[in-house]
Design a protein around this nucleic acid. Structure first.
Lengths: 231, 231
DNA sequence: ACCTGAACACCGTTCAAGT
DNA sequence: ACCTGAACACCGTTCAAGT
């Protein structure tokens, strides 16, 4: 049953797969599939092992901890957001498109976004996006100091609002109390004598939709940036 | 040793504490202390039991699940943010003060904010804040529809950015990799040929501070709201 | 009415042992 | 070099039993 051991590490062992079974890319693919299909709480090392057909501790040979896997997933989130992006000729549409891309990725993978959004800014893949935003702001007429300042404000706001929305969406899918419509109903039931202004506009609160809301925030911020650029 | 049992539930049993040992307020106090001292991961039912001098399952007689405890903590977060708040005579300072209060509470209790921010909007305690914001917007001249729209945008943005900031802060305290300064360093090390605009403003990125950044975002949003109010 | 204690079905991580 | 299997020190929740 014993086979002759190769003395030197054979350079091209016929039929030998490049990596025997597990590797980082495969693990991240599988982790992503689990999170998207069964929610963030389903991402456990044991489940990852089962899904990969391996022992649940084998994964720790390729990532030093579960947290490292999360950072790997965060990197994928940025890559997807930036994938194939081409800046517009004008600065404002460029910034709008980037903000919408961040949000799209977060909404497409809410559980992943909720899990990793705060880790995104540290990753190298974010450099490309940072460079694009900063160029747009310099083109708009801001000096280096202000370009840095507004870059941080814009990315932070886009990421914060997107991941907040994603976290809420992920909550609803994960937990059983999926009644986000109650939001509108509760506000409609608020006492008109104690909260007169709230009661007056309550019907409009219920019908506001998330897309409109994101566009409202984005529009407000970019309006102000544009006004300051002109001054 | 046996004492005579009261036949009827005595209305004023001398020396009898109102609730024998555990109650919701005491449990939330203890939970809050644990989160603030040892981080969000330390909040377990077992630890809660130990700290209360009770069995770890006793808590479930007062809250139906751990999630209900989290909702209770979220309610406290709002109460603290609104505590003693008096609206200003003018609408813009009122909105600024409220946004800064939300952020202050999140920064004062980052672990709690990271844990509960997405649950806040559902709670009844938020009604007072909602009413105040909406009144300010109506005073500014918006009709009911726009008041509702901008209320949602403002509160969402303030809560999202504050909890994002808090989540980052909580991460740093909890995990050992507390090198948020690496942020500036990594950007300084970015390739100037591949990322020329990023490299040009990198020195300013490193020195931007969180307070300035929040004020920048707040200022941008309120500038735009004010401009639209005048139109 | 409230609490205990045991049990259940899980976690992430470590480490000696295999091949 | 990579994977396994057992072990360790934890989780939240349920439920019969106590008082």
């Amino acid at each position: 049953m014993t086979e002759p051991a190769a003395e030197a590490p054979a350079k091209a062992r016929r039929g030998r797969p490049p990596s025997t079974s597990l590797n980082q890319a495969l693990i991240l693919d599988t982790a992503l599939a689990i999170v998207e299909e069964h929610g963030p709480d389903a991402l456990t090392l044991r489940r990852l092992g089962t899904e990969l057909g391996a022992n649940h501790t084998a994964v720790l040979r390729h990532f030093s901890s579960k947290d490292e896997i999360l950072l790997g997933l965060a990197e994928r989130l940025i890559e997807r957001a930036m994938d194939g992006f081409v800046p517009d000729a004008h600065w404002r549409p460029t910034l709008e498109a980037l903000a919408r891309r961040i949000r799209s990725v977060c909404l497409a993978h809410p559980a992943l976004a909720a899990l990793t959004a705060t880790r995104v800014s540290r990753r190298a893949a974010a450099f490309q996006g940072a460079d694009t935003v900063i160029r747009a702001l310099r083109v708009a007429g801001f000096d280096d100091r202000d370009a840095a300042r507004y870059y941080r404000a814009l990315v932070d706001a886009a990421l914060a609002v997107s991941s907040y929305e994603a976290a809420t969406a992920a909550l609803e899918n994960t937990s059983r109390e999926g009644d986000r419509l109650a939001w509108g109903r509760e506000y409609l039931a608020a006492s008109p004598t104690r909260y007169p202004d709230l009661a007056a506009v309550a019907p409009y609160l219920a019908q506001a939709d998330d897309d409109d809301q994101f566009e409202t925030i984005l529009g407000l911020i970019l309006d102000a940036v544009e006004a300051r650029a002109k001054a």
